[in-house]
Structure formats: C-alpha cells, structure tokens
Design a protein around this nucleic acid. Structure first.
Ligand SMILES: Nc1ncnc2c1ncn2[C@@H]1O[C@H](COP(=O)(O)OP(=O)(O)OP(=O)(O)O)[C@@H](O)[C@H]1O
Length: 660
DNA sequence: AATTCGTCGTTTTTT
DNA sequence: ACGACGAATT
C-alpha cells in the first residue's frame, strides 16, 4: 500500500473555506496569494487590514507556524489593532511574531546585536533621553565658543533624525531649514559624530538606532540574515505607505528580493513625510521587487456613501492625483455636517452636547472619536468633558512617561540598574537645594573614585540629603520586588516633589500612583524601563488604569494616531486654515498635499456620522494672530455633499474687528 | 561663583 | 503653558 499526500497548495481544509467565505473575490485572491512578493493597494476602509489578517489565518491553516509569520507596521495603535484582529480570528498555540518596527528591531538587536558590538543589555534612549545626551555634548563643545548662536538640543535632535531618515546631508538640511546656523555647520557635524560615538561606547540606542543598527546588522552579517530569513518565512507589512527608507531596506534584507513579503497600503493615506516616509516608495514596490503580484481592492465596507462622497471630493483636490474612487453598498446615510461655532467655547459645547445626544441614542462613548491636527487642540475640550464627567482616553501628544515628575522617578530607577548614568545623576542631584550643574559635577567626580558615601566632601548645606539619596539608589539596586522599590522611591521623592512642583503638585500627584500601578505589572526593573522607553504611555491611559471607569471611554486622538482605526461617529475639530492645513505647510504644495491626506484619513475613520467643526475665530498666541477662515479643504467641497449647521444660542456676537 | 528667578521667544505630526 | 538664556541674589 502506498500513501499519497495531497500537495499542500491544492488541499483545502474546511477551515480555509470558511475563512474565505466572508471576503470579496479580490480580497480572497490576495489572501490566497502563493509565494513571493505581493502588494495590496487600496483606498481607506476597503478591508486591507482585514485581508492581511485573513492571510495570516490562511497561512496558519496551511501549516505555517505562527511564530514564522512576522507582522509589521509603524504606529503602535495600528500594530495593536492588527495583532488583536489576528488573535480574534485564529487561536494559535504561540503568538504571531510582530508589532511595531521599533519593537521588533529591539528584540532582534538584543538577540544578535553582539555581532556589531551591542550587548543584549543595551539601553534604549527615548526622545527626551536622546536630547539630554545631545545637550551634554552640546554644552561641552560650546564651552570653547561662548556666545555663539547655536541650535538648541531639540533642533539638533530633529536635524540628526531627519538627516538619517531622509539621507539628506546635514549641510543641505541646515542651509535649507536653518540658514542662520550655517556658520556653525562644522560644530553641528562634529556634535553629530560625537553623539553617534558616545551612543556606541555606552551601549545606547535611540529610536532611529533601533532601525539603523538592525538593518546594518542584517545586511552585514550573513549568518544573522540567514537565521532571520529562515525564521520569518512570511513577512506582512501594514500601512506600508508610512515606511521610510530604512524600514524598507530592513524588510528587504530579511525577506530578500523574491521572499514572501506582502505589503499593504494606501498612497492617499501617507502622512509621515516628516520622518522620511514617501508614498512613492510604496508605489514603486513593484519596481524594487520585480516579481511582485499586485492586488487592488475597491469596495469600501466601512463608511456610508455620503461620507465616501466627501472623502472622494477631498482627494480630488490633490495636485498629485491619486487614482482611486471609493464606493460602498452601504446606505447613503446622513449628510456629513459642517458646524461653525462662534468661538472655542461654543465648539466645545457643541461637541459635548453632540456626544451626549449620541450616547442617549445608544452609541457607546467608545464608538465616538474626536480627532484633531495637534494634540493640544483638545485641551479646553478636555476641561469641558471633565466638567460633564465624560470619561475619555487621549491618544497622541504629551506622554505620561515624558513628563518631568515621572522622569524624576525614572532617573532613580535607571541608576539602580546602571550607576554610571551621568545624565540621571545630574537630574536627581540637582533636585537638592543648593546643587546646580557645577556642584553636581563635583560630586560626580568624587563618586568616580569614592564608593563610601561617608567619606565624600560635601557642603553641610546638602550633605545629609545627598547621603540619603545615595543610600536610596544603592538600596534600589538590591534584590527586592519592584513594587516595594517603587514604594520606597515615592516615599523618598514626595517631599522633593512637593518642593519642585510647588504650584501644581496636587495635579501631578495621581501620576505617581499611576506609575506605581504600571510598575506593578512588571517584575524586573530593567524590563519596566525598557517598556517605558519603547511604549511611552499616553496620559489618560493612566486614568483608566487607576479608576476603571464604568463606561468605556470616548476617544480623543490626533489624526496621526487614528490611522487604521474606525468609529461609528467621528467629530473633527478645529478645521481651520492654519490648523488643518497647518501654518507650516502653507507655502509648499507637497506639504499642503500631505495635510490634505491627513484630512482624508480623518474623514475616512467614520462609519456612520461625520461632523466637521470649527470656531469662527481662534486666537493663536504663537503667531499673535486670529485664525478665522475655515479650512480651505472644506471651503472647496461641493456644497451638496455636506449640510451646514447653525448653532442656536442667545449669546452675544463673537468679538468684532478681528483680522480676516 | 553658583543657583535661582524672571522674561523672551517658540511651538506639528511618531517611534 | 515650556524651555533657554540673561540678570539678580544668596
Ligand atoms: N469582505 C468584507 N465584508 C464585510 N466587511 C468587511 C469586509 N472587509 C472588510 N470589512 C470591514 O470593513 C472595515 C474596514 O476594514 P479594514 O480596517 O480592514 O480596512 P483598511 O483598508 O485596513 O482600512 P484603513 O485604510 O483605514 O486602514 C472593517 O470594519 C471590516 O470589518
């Protein structure tokens, strides 16, 4: 008797059939793609992520091991969503590999970084860390050139990052974006080199390094490339239009020119130009991977036709045309509304009022999102929401783990892991009264050779405090549960904290508790610190953590962070010229197009209802000017696609005599 | 001489 | 409301 095994590319398990049942023919074709590179290009809401997720399930049904499938995307929110949707569709014994590019590179680098001189315990610098290190070098260099006008640490950081991500030489960047600093170009270049050297010497990696080091590692060490290539038999990338050159190199380095690489994207949703992403890279995927199969999806399953009509009209304004028209078989729905409120306060009142209406009519708060261009646009709305006790989660903007008081705590923990961390020493020592940068340096110099705190030469003004601080740091290094450490740390920190933030420490107090709550989910200090660096916690997530609200919260989000997600109702606020499009984009067409794509992303997040709101006037301190024109993007929408709402109020007219 | 205090200009978006 | 830099202050 002879056994004949049916070829795996012929056999259809019942599982596979049910998998494909819910998909349209184009989606199913992409899901069943054979081997080699493939590209799915399609508009918003056409089920790109859905297809990708089904592809994963299909691969698993065809006996690929889940940990041999690597799923990548750029933003954390999109990565979470993608992995969750996989988990909902298939239960796997092991998780599918993947997440953000940065998180994945972090793991690869810890495993193989040794071959390029990075030990497994290297430290990740988040943005403020990186800037602080740059600042240390900056002060050192500037000592020799006092009174020179020189870029600030944040500017330098941006320059360096843009330089690396866009492959633009520093001199070109400086003369284009900061011509006033051309005379100091030499120093800037020197600073950059010193910064790069310093990171390598102390085993530090900033966000960009995670990507660049990993790419270099894979490209230069054949055995690593081989291992990863065999480990990840299938690589799938979502939101590929947001991929910048390093990321593209990286996936190619692992998959190879003919590997099983499936990329999914929408050129019309490319919104990360500022960090080197270019939708043209996506469109040219078939040029780079000549064997790539190209799949297109056309039917939108998310939004009503009325919303899509607006989305199509938005993209029609683009100067570089995107050849795509969205359609759906969903009912046309209600017309998207454009609301002019007299001022900020009325805008907030309208939004809160609308949210309460929706909630009463049965739409859950978590099915509603308020979106905006800049994270700070929502500050006053947040006050209004608090006043009405509407729970919300804010995404984007200031990070919890980047606020000053949390960084204070982090500095202590850092030192318990790495007592040589000069930047953290500086931070904690200067918290003591009477110690500034100079005294801190003197103390640090003594600490280099003297391990016994009792023998340190300290001014009596602060000797006691410094000694107890040293005692605390030493104690934190001991074997002890992390939560006990945090307890002692916050106990020590409390008086310093009240002094340092004397005006507003009560407001910050709850963050200290939240810090403890987050820490309690970790066992190891190093793990905890790594997590904080890699996944900076959004501020309001900590509220939900501390108080478990009875109701899933409303979402407030920057448009950037809303990518890939969807809600029943989307309220887009501050749709003003100068906000969206941003003032900084007004003089060049490419930037304006990018702002238009942002607007398109915002609009296409909505399933049923869409509201575009703006105040008639809004003061902007930074420009010392009033914005009073609705966004040019809504101005040029055909009138029949939207409905204009007038707010009923018995209140006085908005202030007169303001600039147009 | 070092620290702190006050004022001026500045400010997108993410990892 | 925030950071950097210059002036008063201990
Ligand atoms: N074949 C289908 N039948 C019914 N609903 C579908 C189908 N494909 C996708 N959907 C639904 O359409 C919505 C959008 O899908 P998905 O998020 O995958 O789109 P997307 O193209 O990735 O969107 P974006 O461009 O915004 O990232 C989801 O609610 C999804 O469940």
């Amino acid at each position: 008797m002879k056994t004949y095994r049916i070829r795996s590319d012929v056999r259809q398990t019942p599982q596979t059939e049910t998998l494909l049942a819910g998909l349209n023919p184009q989606q199913a074709a992409a899901v069943c793609h054979g081997t080699g590179p493939a590209m799915i290009i399609a508009g918003a809401g056409t089920g790109k992520t859905n297809t990708l997720v089904h592809r994963v399930a299909w691969l698993i049904a065809r006996e690929n091991r889940p940990d041999q499938i690597l799923l990548l995307t750029f933003t954390r929110k999109a990565a979470d969503q993608m992995l969750n949707r996989v988990a909902q569709l298939v239960t796997t014994p092991r998780p599918v590999a993947g997440g953000t590019f940065h998180a994945t590179c972090n793991l690869i680098l810890r495993e193989f970084g040794g071959s390029i001189g990075y030990p497994p315990g290297f430290t990740i610098l988040d943005q403020p860390d990186a800037q602080d290190r740059i600042d240390v070098i900056r002060s050192g260099l500037l000592k020799n050139f006092p009174k020179t006008r020189f870029p600030k640490k944040a500017t330098l950081f941006d320059l360096f990052s843009t330089h690396r991500n866009t492959h633009t030489p520093l001199d070109e960047l400086v003369s284009r974006d900061y011509p006033q600093f051309v005379p100091t170009l030499e120093l800037i270049v020197k600073l950059f080199q010193d910064y790069q050297t310093m990171k390598r010497r102390f085993a530090l990696a900033d966000y960009d390094d995670l990507l660049f080091l990993t790419r270099d590692l894979i490209e230069t060490v054949p055995s690593v490339r081989e291992t990863l290539h065999n480990r990840y038999r299938h690589i799938l990338v979502d939101e590929y239009q947001d991929t910048n050159p390093v990321q593209a190199d990286l996936v190619e380095a692992i998959a190879g020119k003919t590997g099983n690489l499936m990329v999914v994207g929408d050129d019309a949703q490319s919104i990360y130009k500022f960090r080197g992403a270019d939708f043209k890279n996506f469109l040219e995927f078939p040029v780079r991977f000549t064997q790539a199969a190209v799949y297109k999806l056309e039917e939108n399953y998310r939004s009503t036709q009325s919303i899509l009509d607006v989305a199509n009209a938005v993209m029609a304004q683009a100067t570089e045309k995107f050849d795509k028209v969205l359609f759906t078989r969903k009912p046309s729905g209600t017309l998207p509304a454009i609301i002019q409120a007299p001022d900020d306060s009325f805008q907030n009142q309208f939004i809160v009022s609308k949210i309460l209406d929706l909630r009463e009519s049965g739409v859950g708060l978590n099915q509603i999102a308020v979106l905006f261009r800049n994270a700070r646009n929502s500050y006053s709305l947040e006050l209004e929401l608090n006043a009405h006790q509407i729970p919300y989660e804010k995404r984007g903007g200031n990070k919890f783990s980047e606020s000053a008081h949390i960084r204070d705590l982090i500095a202590f923990l850092r030192l318990s892991v790495n007592p040589k961390d000069i930047v953290s020493w500086n931070r904690i020592l200067t918290m003591v009264d009477g110690i500034g940068p100079k005294n801190a340096e003197t103390i640090l110099q003594q600490l280099e050779n003297e391990t016994d705190p009792a023998r340190l030469q300290l001014s009596p003004r602060y000797a006691i405090q410094v000694k107890s601080m040293l005692g605390l740091v030493a104690g934190l290094a001991a074997e002890e549960p992390l939560s006990d450490k945090i307890e002692r740390l916050t106990g020590f920190y409390q008086p310093l904290f009240e002094k340092r933030y004397s005006e507003d420490y009560p407001k910050r107090q709850k963050d200290l508790d939240a810090f403890q709550a987050i820490a309690s989910t970790f066992r190891d200090t190093q793990d905890f610190l790594m997590h904080l660096a890699l996944e900076p916690v959004d501020f309001s997530q900590t509220d939900t953590l501390a108080t478990t609200p009875d109701e899933p919260p409303l979402i407030l989000s920057t448009i950037h962070s809303s990518k890939g997600l969807e809600w029943h109702t989307v309220i887009l606020m501050d749709v003003l010229d100068g906000v969206l499009p941003s003032t900084f984009s007004l003089d060049d067409q490419e930037s304006l197009d990018e702002e238009l794509r942002l607007f398109y992303v915002a609009v296409t997040r909505a399933r049923e209802e869409l509201y575009l709101v703006y105040p008639a006037v809004q003061y902007h301190r930074q420009f010392n000017d009033y914005f009073s024109r609705p966004s040019r993007f809504i101005d040029s929408l055909p009138a029949n696609l939207t409905e204009s709402w007038v707010l009923e109020t018995g209140d006085p007219e908005p202030p007169k005599g303001l600039t147009e």
